[in-house]
Amino acid sequence: MNQHDAWFMLLAVLAAFAANEVWRVLGAVLSARLDENSALFSWVKMVATALVAGLVAKLVLSPTGGFALAPLWLRLGSVGVGVAVYAAGRRSLALGVGAAEVVLIAGMVMLGR
């Protein structure tokens, strides 16, 4: 990489940072006025939750790639374990996702896939 390329890369990183930082600052300023209990905010949370649930259902029921090698019973079982750990672990998303992942990987290892 020559000096011209290095300056171009530095300029690209700075431009990307500046463009992103404008939206972060704007979000922080505008979020101070949001009421978390408003009807609009509740609707946005419900729509986001529905989108994530739909994506998970699509991935579990009609997977592609390496995930398709796992049998349906293992995919559904790992989701069930993840939901149970999420509920038992004080609604910790990281615990639920981690438990589902461990069950899925362990199941695939046991099946030799």
Score class of each variant (00 low, 15 high):
L26D: 03
V79M: 09
N20V: 10
N37R: 15
G77W: 05
V60Q: 02
A15W: 05
V13A: 15
A16F: 15
A57K: 05
L26A: 13
A39V: 13
A19I: 13
A12F: 12
G89M: 00
L74P: 01
P71M: 02
V52D: 02
S38H: 08
A39C: 09
A28H: 12
V52N: 01
S31A: 12
P71C: 07
G89P: 00
P71N: 06
V47S: 09
L74G: 03
A94Y: 14
V83P: 01
F41S: 11
V13P: 04
A94F: 15
V22D: 02
V29N: 04
F67P: 00
A57N: 08
M46V: 08
A39K: 13
E36G: 14
G66C: 02
W23I: 09
A16W: 14
V47G: 02
A84E: 03
A70W: 01
L34K: 06
L59C: 11
G80E: 06
S42I: 06
V22C: 01
L76Q: 09
A19Q: 12
A53T: 07
V25F: 11
L30W: 07
L40F: 14
G65N: 02
V56P: 02
G89Q: 00
K45M: 08
L14A: 15
G65Q: 02
G77C: 05
R75G: 05
V25H: 08
